[in-house]
Design a protein around this nucleic acid. Sequence first.
DNA 1: GGCATATATGAGCATCTGTTCATATATGAA
DNA 2: TTCATATATGAACAGATGCTCATATATGCC
Lengths: 125, 125
Amino acid sequence: MSICSYMKGITLIVTEQIEICDVPMVDPEKVDRVKRALTDEETNDRLSHVFGALADPTRLRIIDALSREELCVCDISAALGLSQSATSHQLRTFRQLRLVRQRREGRLVFYSLDGFWTKIVIFIF
Amino acid sequence: MSICSYMKGITLIVTEQIEICDVPMVDPEKVDRVKRALTDEETNDRLSHVFGALADPTRLRIIDALSREELCVCDISAALGLSQSATSHQLRTFRQLRLVRQRREGRLVFYSLDGFWTKIVIFIF
DNA sequence: GGCATATATGAGCATCTGTTCATATATGAA
DNA sequence: TTCATATATGAACAGATGCTCATATATGCC
């Protein structure tokens, strides 16, 4: 929900609204309706980050690979023709977003998709 | 399908394989299985572009808005607090990926989501 | 035609991103 | 402990990205 949605009747900051929203409107009612319906900012940001994780060909390939089998870092690298470093950096992105699980087995670390993927879909569509 | 998958028995370019895939492997069979299963490069690229379109908070907000109602450029701008130029530039991204429809009505151009969104989901998940 | 408005687009710029390279950490084996 | 291997991470750099500003195009009205 954007700031402008809460502006009605708050005279004090109406000037701010004019500054922020100085774009002409065709259908103010529709605009207001849409503004109210919008997803909250936190969710929007979180979601854009998740899509960002899939927005790079290399990362999408890694997800593609992990959707087939659980793989250790070196096997991901081998399967996709990536350097160990590049693979590890990209896996960090996934880890931070909790899109993958990791499991250590001796010197190897095995990655797999978190059982979370279906949630994304439900979320947006 | 990567080059390496086709390398079996082709002695002539085995040296190339060694150069490309100089990362140690733990489970060559698994690596090979995964390589065979991977989505083709064209689809992978296309898909990463689509996700890229959703990977920016501003663009995701536009999609969010358009998922509620058909909107003209200035109303999108107004609803999201964006400049007309920024909005137009981002809509261009969507147009190029055919993620939106556009309909001109006088001086206004109305945008709406293409009925295509469900396809993405089916594709990956 | 001439003017106003809605949208599109190119240039320029600051920021973000993905890679490589070097190095650190972690585990296992000798 | 010492060495080798697997993974993680920081720095640096080239390329991509998203914005603004200026301007072009397109339509409607006079």
